[in-house]
Design a protein around this nucleic acid. Sequence first.
DNA 1: TATGAATGAGAATTCATTCAT
DNA 2: AATGAATGAATTCTCATTCAT
Lengths: 205, 205, 205, 205
Amino acid sequence: MGESVSEGLIQPDKDKVKERILNAAMLIFAKNGYHRATTIKIAKKAGVNEVTIFRKFKTKENLLNAVIRKNLNETLNTLDLILCKEKNADIEICIKTLGINLKQFFDDRMEFILFMITEGRKTPETRILFTQFQFKMLEHLKDYFQEQINLGKIRRINPDLLAFTLFSFIFNKSISEEVFEHKFLPDDLNSFEEYTNIFMNGILP
Amino acid sequence: MGESVSEGLIQPDKDKVKERILNAAMLIFAKNGYHRATTIKIAKKAGVNEVTIFRKFKTKENLLNAVIRKNLNETLNTLDLILCKEKNADIEICIKTLGINLKQFFDDRMEFILFMITEGRKTPETRILFTQFQFKMLEHLKDYFQEQINLGKIRRINPDLLAFTLFSFIFNKSISEEVFEHKFLPDDLNSFEEYTNIFMNGILP
Amino acid sequence: MGESVSEGLIQPDKDKVKERILNAAMLIFAKNGYHRATTIKIAKKAGVNEVTIFRKFKTKENLLNAVIRKNLNETLNTLDLILCKEKNADIEICIKTLGINLKQFFDDRMEFILFMITEGRKTPETRILFTQFQFKMLEHLKDYFQEQINLGKIRRINPDLLAFTLFSFIFNKSISEEVFEHKFLPDDLNSFEEYTNIFMNGILP
Amino acid sequence: MGESVSEGLIQPDKDKVKERILNAAMLIFAKNGYHRATTIKIAKKAGVNEVTIFRKFKTKENLLNAVIRKNLNETLNTLDLILCKEKNADIEICIKTLGINLKQFFDDRMEFILFMITEGRKTPETRILFTQFQFKMLEHLKDYFQEQINLGKIRRINPDLLAFTLFSFIFNKSISEEVFEHKFLPDDLNSFEEYTNIFMNGILP
DNA sequence: TATGAATGAGAATTCATTCAT
DNA sequence: AATGAATGAATTCTCATTCAT
């Protein structure tokens, strides 16, 4: 129905097609990996003719890059939202909330992230792009910790290391749950509670 | 016929061939991913005829499973060595040494681990196998921490969580360095020193 | 709607479009051969939309024929000019000048002529067309020689043969220079001078 | 030895396959041109599976080059035979015989030569190869004329030019008959007779 | 009339796998 | 037991051509 004949609606079909292909490709790529993701599967999923893909993206490799770029950008934007929100709350609460949100964020995208880790590594262009993704995330966290150090709320520790430590725990929890059959730490909420405790107080008695 | 100098001898080369194929396959798989790793490339690397692979392993999928099983076993054995060594030392020293060793261990195998993460996930059999890998590692660490808790050397915290926290940091450092262009934390030794400090004392002033 | 400033005007551009397509097609065909010459390349060169080609010419094969017909006609007209000019001059001068002009004429069109030789041969219609091209040229030359024979300026020799002999030399010089890396006879002017000498006096001492 | 059961026949099938493919390719290429000559057509003609072509020659382009190289070599060898034969006979007879032989030689290969002219021109390697072909032929002729000049049997004229002139007539006759519908000079024997007359005595009365 | 979007029919090429020796 | 030769099934990609506006 929607957008047609006249109706006067705003959004024309214009690049809906390109968009549809990108979305389909993203799903198929993430689920199957680059090679098992055939252009015909993608075309079917997108509801277009296979050739249309080549008209729009020239080569499969190109399509891959377009998919990565698009999703990375969207992902970075979402990330900004998450990271900016909690800055002024109490530090313990902040870390917990941020953890929960970030975990959800990774969980939602883990298939794509794993895809990036393996396929993205091969072309230098996407490798750089993907590096930015991690870098940006870590920089955000680092800034937050730096600020807290300046405010005297935490000890003077290398804020890069703090950022990396926190990131590792959350990212790894997400990746483990996606990759392995077995959940070593079953419950997110409790885990974060406990983790924050360790992170803040250390393990010594 | 050809190469059999004399018929009746013990033929120690017997399954050197199978071994050679498995080693070659492991390298080619890890470097290229399952699909880019063609049987002909593997055959060339192994110095055997392509068909020999099919004689020995029937299908490429089979070869993949054999490779994974073999490498996972070897890997688990190596892991045992690392994890058992340091148990009785001072806790801080122990964690640091273990970190260094584990990091080296991951670095050496990261290509294969990444390969497992992506390709292993697809066949249930290897997925289970791979799960054991993580499980075993975490169990070892957990046991260590449980012991330390019992000895009163660290507070009563969920030892699973402790294991997972430590593992995350090390594993993530290794994976980051393999996947991303940019090293966020440049130096292993210093990083571990600092990390151990946080891990043990927390971040609060 | 777009570009039609006002509806009712005479549109002199009318079949400028067809013309533009034909010119573009001629260049692309000659440079690439029929198959490498894609309709999209032609469209781009002509500055029109690909579909316009099909509006105007129905099929690519049709376009080919139109191109050939057009260029052959233009070519034949140009040829007429060259061949008619020199008829009354001294015979040696005439042959030399004609040689130079004809050579230039071939050089300018050799890509197209080579294209005709290979692609034109395949469709009977264009084959006939192209045959006329050679025929007309040879007839012109023949008439000239017949006339000279009648005037007693040259011996009674088969004028067809004379025409063909002269034509061969010039045509072959042009084709050789286009096709081969190496110029066997470097300089046109000298070569024609010498050639005319042989042609007129033979090789015997 | 070797290959087989019994039969004891000399010629093993060894590279008959490669040979068969080359021969089939040569025919299909010459008849259809590079693009119309599909690998499947070639495979069918050669009586092998399409893939075998790629096993043996990697790419279609490669096959093209192999075909050209092979045929050019065979052609150059045949040429040697023709050009060497008649050196000591009477000059007029020699030229006539050589003409007849050369004409036959071209007629037999004209499809391939035309194919070379158009497709060979595109890749530099084959272009050079093909240049040699013409060069060799002209050098042979030139040497012959030089000798005759030294013996005082013909006037002191640029022997390169003599070679080129003779070659042009013969080559052009062959090419014309292949390309055009219409034979301008119908009969080879008579034509050569007459041509030799002109070539030796010139056209003046 | 002109065109942006879409497509069906092949094309080359790759690859795991089987056959015959 | 091992291998060189051969192949069927897929896959990416190209191209002329049609559709809908």
